[in-house]
């Protein structure tokens, strides 16, 4: 039985986007340049007014956590490889705000000994987000950067319940609107940058039930090198409560959680061009997740910016 598509996938992408967008501004910007960008692939850097980018991501399923939090490796012969191509853009509005759009294309290849291999995919859930920085990182020695985050993820993908292909390989979304709000704190210490972000997401009903409220926390540290490169290490923890039926009853054992660790690096090719790479892993360790598939992923991103 194939693992269902993670309901945290779009949330994780959103966290990375929202956590990152916002520091740069003509008027207010972080003390140094690239640390925040290394934490996420889609970050406007200082002085930038707009950017567009593309991210290629490939991940391989490692197994899953059962409802008790025990990691169970994928059965022999079962494989799942997911690909994602994201196109994104961000633009500044007002002095301290910025808005972004992310359009994902998702492909899944699953193979089981019984059903063979199948490949499918399509448009994923499109995300719109905005960020407003009250104080930017590095602007004050004593007060960290403080930003308000809001977002909406549209059900533009195909949910697993509507998938028609064998092994549901054409599932590309969760089938519900998601509204997110969050708070990001960020500070620079010389060449170091520390980020802590929390986001809460509410989802609308779909197929007679409503997914539980989702919370995601991200903590990251990054180091910027002379010349503009940066390395970052981040960890995220996402959880959601039980889903509820149309009558308001809890759906037993539907809550879930997952932990992820990401190492990422940024290299600027020129002032207006940069590339990023990231390696992320949902550690296959008992109690770091429940009721969720786990994966290791590799991503590559290229960004063009304007100021």
């Amino acid at each position: 039985m194939p693992s269902p598509r993670s309901t945290f996938r779009s949330a994780a992408a959103l966290v990375l986007a929202l956590a990152a967008w916002g520091c740069p501004s003509r008027a207010w910007a972080q003390a140094c340049c690239a640390g925040g960008s290394a934490v996420t692939p889609a970050r406007l850097e200082m002085h930038e007014d707009a950017l567009v980018g593309a991210q290629l991501r490939a991940s391989s399923a490692l197994g899953s956590y059962d409802t008790g939090g025990r990691f169970v490796a994928s059965p022999p012969g079962d494989t799942e490889v997911d690909f994602e191509e994201d196109i994104f853009g961000a633009m500044r509005f007002l002095r301290r705000g910025q808005a972004a759009l992310l359009v994902p294309l998702v492909e899944t290849r699953r193979r089981t000994p019984q059903d063979g291999a199948h490949l499918g995919g399509g448009l994923g859930d499109v995300n719109l987000s905005a960020r407003y920085d009250f104080v930017a990182a590095g602007e004050s020695r004593y007060l960290p950067g403080v930003a308000l985050l809001v977002g909406a993820t549209l059900p533009t993908g195909t949910p697993a319940d509507s998938a028609t292909a064998p092994l549901a390989v054409d599932a590309t979304g969760i089938g519900a609107w998601q509204l997110q709000a969050g708070l990001a704190l960020e500070q620079t210490y010389g060449r170091w940058l520390v980020n802590a972000t929390g986001i809460v997401a509410k989802r609308t009903a779909r197929f007679g039930e409503t997914l539980g409220t989702q919370g995601t926390f991200l903590v990251a540290g990054a180091y910027s090198f002379e010349g503009g490169g940066a390395l970052a290490l981040s960890g995220s923890y996402a959880f959601e409560g039980d889903a509820t039926t149309g009558s308001g009853a809890d759906v037993p054992a539907s809550s879930k959680r997952v932990t992820a660790v990401t190492v990422s690096g940024l290299w600027p090719l020129a002032d207006a061009w940069r590339v990023l790479g990231a390696l992320s892993l949902d550690p296959p360790i008992d109690s770091l997740g429940s009721n969720q598939p786990t994966a290791g992923a590799l991503s590559f991103t290229m960004i063009r910016s304007w100021w």
Partner: peptide, 11 residues
Amino acid sequence: TEALGCALQKW
């Protein structure tokens, strides 16, 4: 013109 530098930490 625009100065493309890092934010000065003034407070």
